[in-house]
Nucleic acid binder design. Structure first.
Length: 290
DNA sequence: CCACAGGTGTGTC
DNA sequence: GACACACCTGTG
């Protein structure tokens, strides 16, 4: 069955969805750009993982985006939004032509998408990311999911996939158990955040009417969430495209290619997407990959 | 043994 | 406000 929605053609199979002629989509670049910790390469060009409580396998060849193990309903309810399919990345990249470095970076990784990730998962994951490295961040998140999440899928080789733990699962586990999952000094932050999500004090809808600065200030009331983590949450979950996370890499980039005064304003309303291109470009061209 | 990893809270001036 | 400084843990 094929449908046409907003000028894109989509084919639905028994157990997969194919979106035809998708521009600017690379599963590899998207999942390796540091915004998401739960997808891994399972074969050439294919990435598998769990998001929003569902297991999928994602690949994109010749402009055809294939999502395996997705129903038609899940595609419309979850993945269309998750992969930001409505956003015009081509136009966004064109708007970056005022800057040579940005032009180079965006043509290097024009297939990166800004994912629309679950708020709680993003908050928790980026708290874990502080003063940490990506392999260990992934390891901790997998361990938490295996212990406190739900079994979602087991593949033919016997590998099991788990959902990210719900906030109340971590809250009832307690700070001590969270610490024992090798989260270190971040345990108290995770516990505190979990409690606030259980209370319902934090909800994604709350941020819809807020601008980016308001969003970041609100997020920073969570312990362990500073400007960098708050910007990541705003960008990778709440879709505030002008949120501009500044980490050690971006700091280096700003020093190397720009002036000390260059701030997010210079990059405009899609500063966050610019940040992703620059970050990924700089890391790849300096030999750091995963 | 020590530095470092996609930072942040706390205590100083 | 602009600084140091510690912080769990694994890896080089």
């Amino acid at each position: 069955m094929t449908e046409c929605v907003k000028n894109i053609n989509i084919t639905f199979d028994e157990n997969s969805v194919t979106v035809h002629n998708v521009k600017n989509f690379s599963a590899c670049d998207t999942f390796n750009s540091g915004q998401c910790f739960r997808f891994n390469k399972i074969s050439e060009g294919v990435f598998a993982g769990v998001a929003h409580g569902r297991y999928i396998e994602v690949s994109c060849e010749n402009g055809d985006l294939k999502i395996q193990r997705s129903t038609r309903e899940d595609f419309y309810n979850i993945w269309y939004d998750y992969f930001d399919l409505a956003f015009d990345y081509e136009g966004c990249i064109k708007s970056f032509s005022f800057d040579r470095t940005l032009q180079k970076a965006s043509s290097f990784c024009s297939g990166i998408r800004i994912l629309h990730q679950d708020l709680w998962e993003t908050v928790c994951s980026f708290i874990i990311s502080q003063n940490n490295n990506i392999p260990r961040i992934k390891k901790i998140i997998e361990a938490l999911s295996e212990k406190y999440g739900n079994l979602i899928y087991t593949d033919s080789s016997g590998r099991s996939y788990y959902s990210f733990p719900a906030a109340d699962a971590l809250y009832s586990a307690g700070e001590k158990e969270i610490f024992e999952m090798k989260t270190g000094f971040r345990a108290k932050y995770i516990y505190d955040a979990a409690q606030r999500f259980c209370d319902g004090k934090v909800a994604a809808e709350k941020f819809e009417s807020m601008n980016t600065d308001e969003t970041i200030n609100e997020l920073m009331t969570i312990k362990g969430v500073g400007p960098k983590v708050a910007s990541c949450i705003a960008l990778f979950s709440l879709r505030k495209y002008d949120a501009f996370p500044v980490d050690v890499w971006v700091k280096k980039i700003l020093e190397k290619y720009y002036t000390p005064q260059t701030g997010k304003e210079y990059f405009g309303k899609y500063a966050g997407i610019a940040q992703q291109y620059l970050f990924y470009y700089e890391r790849c061209t300096n030999g750091v990959y995963l």
